[in-house]
Write a protein that binds this DNA or RNA. Sequence first.
DNA 1: GTAATCGTTTGAATTTTTTCAAACGTTAAA
DNA 2: TTTAACGTTTGAAAAAATTCAAACGATTAC
Lengths: 164, 164
Amino acid sequence: MSAEERIKKEIIQNFGHAYRAFGLNKLMGHVVALLIFSPEPLSLDEISQNLERSKGPVSQIMKRLRDRNLIRRVWHPTSRKDFYEIQPEIFENAFRNNFELIKSNTRLAKQLKATVNKEKSDNFDTLKLRLLEMQKFYELTEKHFDNFLSEWSVEREKIYSKSK
Amino acid sequence: MSAEERIKKEIIQNFGHAYRAFGLNKLMGHVVALLIFSPEPLSLDEISQNLERSKGPVSQIMKRLRDRNLIRRVWHPTSRKDFYEIQPEIFENAFRNNFELIKSNTRLAKQLKATVNKEKSDNFDTLKLRLLEMQKFYELTEKHFDNFLSEWSVEREKIYSKSK
DNA sequence: GTAATCGTTTGAATTTTTTCAAACGTTAAA
DNA sequence: TTTAACGTTTGAAAAAATTCAAACGATTAC
């Protein structure tokens, strides 16, 4: 096996683990790594072949990746096949996906707090305070996420303008 | 079922889903919610009983939660049992756990970039740039995480000093 | 209009994760 | 020293997620 192939395999494996750690499907990570690695868009067949999976699950994974804005479809004028490539803003988009989870936690905390506050019972004192803390925590998180994203767009621009 | 119990059940379910979305065991979320809800520390038996699980899996989950600094053990002078309560800094600690994942991604990007840069081949141009982007992205993330955590400790102090 | 080439869907098979009950070991009481 | 009360470990059972091969439907080529 060539050095290239070794590195490629390693990256693919690593991405699989990383995706897994974040609660996503390992195969999603593999596909993302493969596409990051590839200078050209790849077809469904090429991807299945490369990762040694059948078309079925790969097709499903491609849908999930598209839903998350991590990849996108492109078309060759000469071919009837779909081709896929990485979304240029993949890291930012992955981050946004997690951001959505954070936001849903904020909403959850607020909603729970509202429900609990309606109750007369004193038993909820500990909980009320905790839910307030939770809400504040996630609100602060959201603020910093926003800051991060605007700073990142500047940073990213720098990387790619240099490389031209 | 009383209003209290209803709310409690709902919170427990919600936490289960949230934990799941982040790639953790649902039962971990349930235990955390139960302990957040509880004004008093709970024993292993009480937790198993409350969540209708046997001691075995709960014992294992408690270990995982302790490893992640989300709960802690306390002892009653009068009882031989272990009791558990939420770590006061649970949100911060959960955040730190994710932070560790981010850091491992930074390390991964750096390491991959180093490996790839050693290669003479031109085939890696796309990949090199991507890995640079990835490294920068995660470095910026780390910076903002740090900012967040220091700001949060101030914010949290405010919440709990007010409540006294 | 028919055949060929796609991507997607589906139900079954496999693999992995979760869960349990029982056995085990340890500590404290009797 | 024995017994009782714990928490943890373990191997098997149950549940859930992943994966596949085949069927399907839609679109393009002939």
